[in-house]
Every structure is written in structure tokens, then in C-alpha cells.
Design a protein around this nucleic acid. Structure first.
Lengths: 125, 125
DNA sequence: TTATCTGCAAACATTTTGCAGCGAG
DNA sequence: CTCGCTGCAAAATGTTTGCAGATAA
């Protein structure tokens, strides 16, 4: 537990939307935190591995992070404009994925399921 | 319709798995085709826009392409090792996605649904 | 003290772009 | 002939890594 690690945890707590590593880095620097971009990446990577944050890959290839509420596996409906996100209960999809994998004899299956759209607020604009 | 464009279409026809732009470029050069990597990227981008190829983003961030059989929207179960892929009928998921988007008042929704695993052949190894 | 973490800058990988020249129509 | 396509190399982007110095325990 270092100063920087705590700082990253704090920004994550202060925002409710998905942010890229670079955005988080800027937020940290804006708050006066002295922290390197590499550290942000390293910290986020380790937090993601520990399941402390959600990481999703946006359509443009950026990876975005958010502290996750649910500690169980789940998916998101993310606003493409502001990053606001809803965590989804995807039991139906899980079952579907598992069944299909079995049907085609694929093993060691993981899945990517993300929805991107415009949230009500951004739609209005 | 240029020589290069035709060449790209041909390699795509000759392979049945998802390949990265770079892999396709190598295949083309191996066949003796003189073609630049940039052209491959440009051609694939335009083909993807026309719906002539499927483009999926692998977990490692690479985009991989394959000529698609079905001209309708669909998803894939892709072998993480060899790239072999099964096209999936995902009507159930479509409905799920649409319903959730409506429920949360998100508009202009698109979705990413891909399964990655090991195909029977690669599992055996 | 010691193992770990950090910052910086350079390295990387993939994809995009500027521009002069080639080629299809 | 003319406009679009191509090739090359350079640039842009997002992310990772090597290494020396700082820091937590």
C-alpha cells in the first residue's frame, strides 16, 4: 500500500464512470498528485487482476476502468459519450455462452459482452 | 477494383480463420503479391464497412478479420490458439441486449459479444 | 535493511496518415 | 487525362518495460 496506490483507489472512488488510464492519470495530476502514467497503468493492471476494478475494452481499442461494485462476474451497458455505466445481470448470457461452448466442444472459454450506447442524458443533447 | 483489392479478397477466401491484418499481409507477400501493409489495412477497413468481412477485437487488442458467410449481424466463438471460428446465431443475445438498452433508456446501442476458447483440436494438444 | 514500488524515458505494437507517383477507367 | 489507389516512411496512439533511485515494512 503506497501513496500512489491509495491515490488511484481514491480517484476511482470519486468517479462513477469508466475512465481510461490516461484520463485517470490526468485526474490525479489535476488533484495535485505526483504520479507517473506508468504507475497508473501498473496499478490498474494489478487491481484488475485482483478483481478490484472492472476493465473493458472500448470499441476504439482503449481500455477503460472503473471500481466495481459487484465482486462477481458481470457485464456493462456503457455510455459511449460520457462513460456512465450500468452493471448488468447477465445470467442469461452466461448460460448461453456456456451452452454454445459445450456444443462446439470448445474448452477454456471466456467471453466478452459489452453494450455501448448513449445514456439518457447524452441522448438528450 | 484493383489488383491489390482482388488479392486481399483472395487470401480471405483461402483461409477460414480469423487473421490479423499483419498476418494477412504476410500471407500476401508469401504468395508473391507486392502489396503494402497500409493498403491491407485500408482495404480491410473498407471491406469491414461494407460488411464483406467480419472484424473482431481479440483480447490482446489486435483486430482480426475473416470473410463472413452470413451477411447478417452475428457473433463468434473463436479459438484463442489457432483462430478457428464458429459463427453463432445470437438471436437470444440480440433480444437481451435490446431489452436491456430500452430498460435503461440508452439509445443508439451497439454490442460486442465474442467468445474465446480452445477449439477441440487445440484442446487435445 | 531489503524487497517492492515509482518515475522517467525509451521501447513496442498496432494502426493511421501525408504525399508523391502509379494505374484504372 | 484525371481521380482514386498504392507504397513508403513517418507519425500517432495506447501500453509496456528497463533501470536507477525512492519508499514502505
Amino acid at each position: 500500500m503506497t501513496t500512489q496506490r491509495r491515490a488511484v483507489a481514491e480517484v476511482l472512488a470519486s468517479v462513477s464512470d469508466f475512465q481510461s488510464a490516461q484520463q485517470l492519470h490526468e485526474l490525479l495530476r489535476a488533484r495535485g498528485q505526483r504520479i507517473g502514467l506508468a504507475t497508473v497503468y501498473r496499478t490498474l493492471a494489478s487491481m484488475a487482476e485482483l478483481g478490484e476494478v472492472d476493465a473493458i475494452r472500448a470499441p476504439d481499442g482503449e481500455t477503460r476502468y472503473r471500481r466495481c461494485e459487484l465482486r462477481v462476474h458481470h457485464h456493462h451497458l456503457v455510455c459511449r459519450s460520457c462513460g456512465a455505466a450500468v452493471e448488468l445481470d447477465a445470467r442469461a448470457v452466461e448460460k448461453w455462452a456456456t451452452a454454445l461452448a459445450a456444443q462446439h466442444a470448445y474448452t477454456d472459454v471466456e467471453h466478452t459482452v459489452e453494450l455501448f450506447g448513449l445514456c439518457p442524458a447524452c441522448s438528450a443533447r
